[in-house]
Structure formats: C-alpha cells, structure tokens
Design a protein around this nucleic acid. Structure first.
Length: 282
DNA sequence: CTCGTCCCCTGGGAGC
DNA sequence: TGCTCCCAGGGGACGA
C-alpha cells in the first residue's frame, strides 16, 4: 500500500485534527498487529497531547508532550480514518465493529480509527531523543524529498552496486520511502531500465533519476496518493494518482510515452512485479 | 553483498 | 454460485 505519498497524504490530512489535541481514550481491539502492542500502550497514550505529526520514510510519527513518539507503520493495507467532533459529541463506533478496525483513539477533536485487514502494520512508542537509534530508523536511507537527495547522492549510494536499479531504489537503506509503484513509475519517466545495474549509472542518468523520483512523489502527494484497494485520505476520500500510472499494473498496454510504440511488460524482480517498457527504458 | 524463497495476513479477481 | 489459485502499496529471516 502505502508508500511515501500515501503516508504523507495521511499525515497532511490528520495533522489539523491531531496536532494540539489531547488523547482521551485508546481502545485496542486485539493485543497485536504485526507485533504485539508495547506494555501499557493505551495508558501511556491517554492524557497525552500531540504536539506534532511528522513522517519519516513510510512511518508516521506523532510527537507527544511527554517526549515520547507514537510510531505507526501502515504495512500493506493499513489506513487511518478521522471522524471529527467535539469532545463528548463524537461516537465511539458503537453498534458496528468493522472487522478490521483494530485501534480506536479518541481525542478532544474526534475519533481516529486504525483499520488494517492484513495486519502488516504496527504501532509502538519510543523516546523522542532515541528515535535516531531506534531499530526501525537507524538504517534508513535518505528522504527523497529532502535537500539531501540529489543525483550526486544517488550516484554515491549506488556506486559499485551490482544489484538492479529496481532493487537498489526499493532498498530502504538507500532511499527511504519508495515502494513498488513509485520505483516503477520513476524509472519509466527517467527512461531507465529497472534491470540495469545500479552501479553503472552515469552522472547524467543519476540526475535525471533523482529528478523524476522527486517529481513523481510530489505529483502523487498532490493527487492524494494512489488508491488501489485500501488507501484513503484521512477524510475517507480516494487518492487519484493511480489514474496517472504509466506502467504500474499496465501489463500489455501501450507505453504512455508518446514517442514510443512499446508495450508494457511485467516481470519478477526480487520476488516482486516490475512493470516497464522494454522499448523506451534502456 | 546479493539473490531467491518463505513468511506474516486477508481479500479480490480470474478461471474453471 | 463456489471453489482454487494467484496476486497485492511492506518488510524481515534464512540459506545458498
């Protein structure tokens, strides 16, 4: 699911409701998601005020007023939904208990529900000042929308690597936040074959690739992300970047590049589907 | 290092 | 309708 643009869309949608709001009650409807919830999870959240809502790679980070961070990862199918309402006025999802609503967080500003059919997502708590050393974050690569990301960065990261461009971009230790969709889309826009060795990139190609990665992420965020099955914006609205896919899930269709008469193909790389145009991606 | 494979889990779609 | 099989925005463990 959720790659960087979807997580960022969720962050932007939730921030107006969460930042400055106090957590009133936390209801856990099971003892675990991908991992067990930490000890006293609900109790450690209740009464806390959220002072900022940040994102690192595909992680959402709710900074709390006691210098703890609520870390949330959406896995493949996780989503948050915010139902705004004054305190006392919002309703805990009462009668209906939708099968995959696993966490319900009541705030002064409304009700935040975490839904995750496949339960590959998770939530945990960490101390703010140790976040950089936390196992989830210590090995994470560069943020592709930060000033640290450039063609030079890519060239340095990929130098000497024999692995494919596809695998190198998907590896969160290099660039953090890209997933299968946006790697495929960026490589197509850059005119680069996903099969090429990452270490063989020229300086010019690195620049183009860095630019297209940023462009495709920015456009996707602008579009509210890509809604395939599970992704929703925080208010429940669908993202619409999936209509702008040029290769992802377009096997057998004509290449979207107007100068190209190729046909999109799908092939497995590192156990995941890669979509690309063998004609214009060299 | 890099690869393939299997795993976590549920659901949707294709094909029979 | 129903069954089986394959596939899915992620990530990690393990062995070759």
């Amino acid at each position: 699911m959720p790659e960087l643009p979807e997580v960022e869309t969720v962050r932007q949608g939730l921030a107006p409701f969460l930042v400055g709001s106090r957590i009133v009650r936390v209801e856990l409807r099971r003892k675990d998601l991908r991992f067990p919830f930490p000890e006293h999870f609900a109790g450690r959240l209740e009464g806390r005020r959220i002072v900022a809502l940040n994102r690192r790679a595909k992680y959402l980070l709710a900074m709390l007023d006691d210098d703890q961070v609520l870390i949330a990862h959406l896995g493949m199918s996780g989503s948050f939904r915010m139902e705004a309402g004054a305190i006392g006025a919002f309703k805990f999802p009462r009668d209906k208990n939708p099968a995959h609503d696993h966490v319900v967080i009541s705030l002064e500003t409304g009700c935040l529900t975490y839904n995750d059919p496949r339960r590959f997502g998770f939530m945990t708590l960490a101390a703010t000042d140790t976040l950089a050393e936390h196992p989830f974050f210590v090995g994470l690569g560069v943020e592709p929308l930060s000033n640290d990301f450039s063609g030079q960065t890519l060239a340095r990261l990929f130098a000497g690597k024999t692995t494919s461009l596809k695998a190198a971009l998907l590896d969160q230790r290099n660039v953090a936040g890209l997933g299968n969709i946006y790697v495929c889309e960026a490589l197509h826009r850059a005119g680069l074959s996903p099969l090429r060795a990452a270490g063989g990139l020229t300086g010019a190609a690195s620049e183009i690739l860095a630019r297209t990665v940023r462009a495709v992420l920015r456009e996707a965020i602008e579009a509210g992300g890509s809604s395939l099955r599970d992704h929703r914006q925080a208010d429940g609205a669908l993202g619409y970047f999936q209509h702008n896919f040029r290769v992802y899930d377009r096997e057998g269709q004509a290449c979207a590049n107007p100068d190209c008469r190729g046909t999109i193909i799908r092939r497995a790389q590192n156990g995941r589907s890669t979509f690309y145009c063998p004609n214009c991606q060299g």
